[in-house]
Design a protein around this nucleic acid. Structure first.
Length: 586
DNA sequence: GCCGTTTTCGGCCCGACTGTTTTCAGTCG
């Protein structure tokens, strides 16, 4: 495995997984192997680049990194190599780590194939393996037969068409279709989605579904009639896994209703939540599984999750919290913010054409307000993008903003707005690469307030980007930092930022961080929301809707807030208008 | 390897499914 000084989190996670696999081949202590796997998982979860944390001496903030691994990382970031890691990899063919990317091939298989078949070059290992399998030469290796040749060919084709994780919204939609199908069968007593989808994680790998049924075989046979199924990949007594025509995997579990509670608990995860829960249980002499709670040889079953948690002496833990972020050991669980707490949306785009270089909204003030009323809102922050700076003078920009203000003022007092919904005159203003705002002073004066955000130069180094952002946010009219990391899921990584600094600044200057609900953003990410909440930094859950029918999408942002342990008091747009106006000095 | 309001030493989750076996190892979640 090649290492270098500038490894990013994705590469580092891969490195630690490879190290774990290498230790497995060398039959080292299995807890040491798990320790390396834990580090990999922890790096994958980290919202900040490890190298940035290292530079600031904060590696100990990352769970799973102890003294030893911190020292190895220090060596890595300084020299680009780690002697101890080189030693772990010594004698192992590089190609095995490439082979392990194929589904179904783990460390043992990869090692065996790479050595016995003399697959020495990582870059050609996979195609060569495929050819050997097709030619029927794989079965000569001990432990391999005709079927494993087929499996490997299949695995390689899946490896080639490996797709990104689904956006949460897409996964919800897909799960809905499958559940609708299942619920038509009289054999299905209950069915629901589990896994990361139930925990409302921002992206979802595959769809997990639980079915309560007295007839597992029959219900499974019914499920297999779902028309989108391309092929069955796994089929046992309690579980069916299929690949859909769209390339997505679906796992469905069929259990009797009296053990449905533990089933749902188990497959909701997360894995690390369950591990922590089982460690806790062990100390009480109990053993947990999807079947229930074992004490000695007797098994107690649970029809509901509430009773399952209660049997461990715990309050019910909402799925969004089950990420091993302290939810098991905490004395008091937060009273999470709910959709019904939201009193307004502070980031919505209208069709008022102010000659911006970004997207215009599709709907009029009137239609937006109608929709807002249907959601029970008290106010609506209309925050169009600022007018383009390239083809307007400062004077022109100010004039455009003035005209827009007049329009909103008129709307607020007109008969059109009898809905008693206060429309706020906001703008979403670009923070330019140097930290200045894209709207001149007199233009900002005309607003109730501004949301500020980054729409360009996403790759500035940590210090520059942090300073840029704080400069933009320091203007008195700038109250909310919109989509703070500027990430786009599966498309663009977050901007590198010093979050300790940003949180401290927000706290001191009463700035608010947005949780942007649009499906491809979900920004601020949940792990940073948690840190903001811990510190007392205020949040605003907004849609960034570009059409009236997107206002309902705020549920996704509320889910992110919940995953970050936010209560209603942490979110400013749960406040009634008078209180909101007071804290924002409107 | 890491980790700790019952521990700085002695712990570290639990099971399904598959293929090639002749009782189980490997992979996955």
């Amino acid at each position: 495995m090649k290492t270098h000084r500038h490894m990013d989190n994705r590469e580092l996670a891969g490195l630690f997984r490879a190290l774990a696999s290498a230790l497995e081949i060398k039959k080292k202590n299995r807890f040491r192997i798990i320790a390396y796997q834990n580090v990999a998982a922890s790096i994958e979860k980290s919202p900040q680049e490890l190298k940035d944390l290292w530079r600031e001496g904060k590696l100990d903030q990352v769970p799973g990194i102890g003294k030893n691994i911190a020292a190895h990382l220090d060596e890595l970031f300084q020299t680009g190599r780690v002697k101890h890691f080189d030693q772990i990899f010594r004698g192992l063919p590089e190609a095995m780590f490439k082979l392990m990317e194929v589904p179904g091939i783990g460390p043992k298989t990869a090692y065996k194939l790479a050595t016995k078949l003399k697959l020495n070059q990582a870059s050609t290992a996979v195609p060569r393996l495929k050819r050997l399998a097709q030619e029927g030469k794989l079965r000569r290796v001990e432990g391999f037969g005709e079927q494993s040749e087929k499996d490997i060919i299949q695995g390689i084709s899946e490896f080639h068409q490996k797709e990104d994780r689904m956006l949460l919204s897409a996964a919800s939609h897909l799960a809905r279709k499958i559940l609708d199908h299942l619920q038509k069968s009289p054999l299905v007593i209950k069915a629901e989605h589990l896994g990361s989808l139930r925990r409302q994680k921002d992206t979802v790998g595959d769809i997990d579904i639980a079915v309560a049924t007295k007839n597992p075989q029959g219900a499974a046979a019914y499920f297999l009639k779902f028309p989108e199924i391309k092929k069955i990949t796994d089929q046992g007594e309690k579980k069916v896994s299929v690949l859909l025509k769209n390339g997505r995997q679906v796992d469905v579990r069929f259990h009797p209703p009296d053990e449905y509670g533990s089933l749902v608990q188990h497959f909701t995860g997360s894995k690390s939540h369950n591990v922590k829960l089982r460690e806790l249980a062990l100390k009480k002499g109990l053993s947990l599984s999807e079947y229930g709670i074992k004490k000695g040889k007797s098994l107690k079953k649970f029809a509901s999750e509430e009773k399952f948690y209660a049997a461990l002496g715990l309050k019910y833990i909402p799925p969004e919290l089950r990420e091993d972020r302290g939810e098991i050991t905490t004395k008091v669980l937060p009273k999470l913010v709910e959709l019904d707490d939201i009193k307004g949306d502070l980031h919505v785009h209208s069709d008022i054409d102010i000659q911006t270089s970004h997207d215009l909204g599709a709907d009029s003030l009137k239609n937006l307000v109608l929709k807002a009323r249907s959601l029970g809102y008290q106010y609506l922050g209309v925050a169009d993008h600022n007018p383009a700076t390239t083809n307007h003078t400062s004077k022109q920009i100010i004039a455009i903003i003035k005209a827009r203000k007049d329009k909103i003022d008129k709307f607020n007092t007109s008969h059109e707005n009898k809905m008693k919904i206060k429309v706020l005159n906001l703008l979403e203003v670009d923070i330019k690469p140097d930290g200045s705002l894209a709207v001149p002073e007199q233009g900002l004066d005309l607003l109730d307030f501004a949301l500020v955000s980054i729409h360009s130069s996403f790759r500035q180094p940590l210090k520059t980007a942090t300073q840029r952002l704080l400069t933009g946010l320091s203007h008195p009219k700038a109250k909310i930092l919109a989509h703070p990391t500027a990430r786009m899921l599966n498309r663009r990584p977050p901007v590198n930022l010093d979050w300790d600094k940003i949180f401290a600044f927000c706290l001191k200057n009463h700035k608010v961080l947005e949780i942007n609900s649009s499906p491809e953003r979900l920004d601020l990410p949940d792990s940073l929301v948690k840190r903001a909440v811990d510190l007392g930094v205020k949040l605003a859950v907004n849609t960034d809707a570009h059409a009236a029918d997107q206002l309902g999408g705020i549920a996704s942002g509320v889910a992110v807030a919940r995953r970050g342990w936010a209560e209603a008091r942490d979110v400013i747009n749960t406040l009634p208008y008078a209180k909101l106006a007071a804290i924002l000095n409107l």
